Simulated assay, not measured.
Amino acid sequence: MTGAAAPDDDLDLTLEGVDLVTLPKVSLHDHLDGGLRPETILELADEAGLETPRDEPEALGEWFVASAGSGDLPTYLKTFDQTVAVMQTAEALERVAREFVEDSVDDGVVYVEARWAPEQHLAQGLSLDEAVEAVASGLEQGMRAATAFGARIEAVQLLTALRQNDRSLDIAELALRHREDGVVGFDLAGPELGFPPSDHRAALDLLAAEFMPVTLHAGEADGLDSIVSALVDGRALRLGHGTRLTEDVDLVEDADGTTVAEIGDVAGWVRDRGIVLEMCPSSNLQTGALTGDLTDHPLDLFYQLDFPVTVNVDNRLQSGTTLSEEWARVAEAFDYGVDDLAVLALNAVEGAFLPAPERQELADRVLAGFDRARQG
């Protein structure tokens, strides 16, 4: 296969003698329009007669990482103007989706949910259904190519509605129309502050009535109220990011001087009901969802408190990362071993929008892959 982003020069992708790239991974929070190869952007832009901020792949990749590292979510989101602009034809969507799968395979990913917003890809005449069909074709091409290389991956779609727009009901209906064609769930993305899930109650009620799984961005750029709306109005089974769930967890010292966690009703619901947290460490640093450095990320706090935490890339291009690199960073920051990464991987399996028998089969594959890696 081809194309996965090169790892950081100083980032060690081995842990306890295991090559992290070879470990089987499940990617739940992975934006299609945030995973393009820089060279693909340049080629598609040239075909479409569009200008790009840089003319060479390496320089363009560096531009995306630098531009996304503003510490502000709306500014971070502006970088998507460049990627979405070159994804306006069926051929471009097919190519991007195919390469998305190829790059996932190169990173050891065995299951990926590609989330994207079809409403952003209609500028050159595609219908919503045609856009979804083009991505489905590209994902299928990528899976077939993986099989030809002796690899195995399942790549499906999560359809995203933009919370600042008014097309969420259209996108919910679109997801339902294509649920037999590889669309497994629904998402809300875009500026979080001021655009709560409750604004999209009609779409979310329809999805609940039709038993379509929902994961919502919440607790990234807004606080606990946004998470509550995702849980109550959205019936969310997963939370995209969820970093500000810490607002409902207090660390206090008991009479013996031991630090204990007091977990509030919202955080308790998330933990006790198994609502999966889709955490994206590098992205959270870029957008300002996290202050300090990676050691300050609440991922480890939630992990130690037995929340169903997962590690994700969010946007490989904007963060200049891969899932293997995110695992390596998390392992270094929190002194995790391979067994800890296995727990994170199985958390992701449990959160996958698959029927229970398929999740069990995926869990068996992941465990077998970890066993093989440990044995060398």
Rank of each mutant, 00 (worst) to 15 (best):
T14H: 15
P74G: 01
D9S: 15
L28V: 07
V21K: 02
L23F: 11
L42E: 06
L73V: 11
F64I: 15
E16Q: 14
D55P: 08
S67T: 14
E58W: 02
E16D: 10
P7E: 01
P53S: 03
A4R: 13
E39G: 03
E51N: 07
E62I: 08
G69L: 04
L11N: 00
E16S: 08
D10H: 13
G49N: 02
K25C: 14
L15Y: 09
D55W: 06
G35M: 05
R37C: 00
L23C: 08
L50T: 03
P24D: 13
A68Y: 08
E58S: 15
G35D: 05
G61F: 00
G71Q: 10
S27D: 14
L50H: 06
A66K: 07
G35H: 09
T52H: 06
G17L: 02
V26P: 06
L60V: 10
R54V: 11
D9A: 15
P7N: 02
T40H: 08
G71W: 02
P24V: 12
E43I: 12
A66I: 08
P24G: 12
L11E: 00
R54G: 08
R37M: 03
T52R: 06
G49T: 07
D12E: 12
L15P: 04
E43T: 15
G61E: 01
L23G: 09
T14L: 09
T40D: 01
V26K: 13
V65N: 07
V18L: 11
L23P: 04
E39V: 05
H29A: 06
D72R: 15
V21P: 00
L13K: 01
W63I: 04
E39I: 02
I41F: 08
G71C: 12
S70G: 14
D30V: 13
G17P: 10
E56D: 14
P24E: 04
H29F: 07
L73Y: 11
A66V: 03
L32V: 01
T14M: 09
D30I: 08
A45K: 06
L36C: 00
G49R: 01
G69I: 00
T22G: 11
D33C: 12
S67H: 15
A68E: 12
L20C: 05
E51R: 09
E62V: 11
E47Y: 13
E58Y: 13
L36I: 05
L44R: 06
S27A: 15
A59Y: 02
A45V: 04
I41D: 03
G61V: 03
E62P: 02
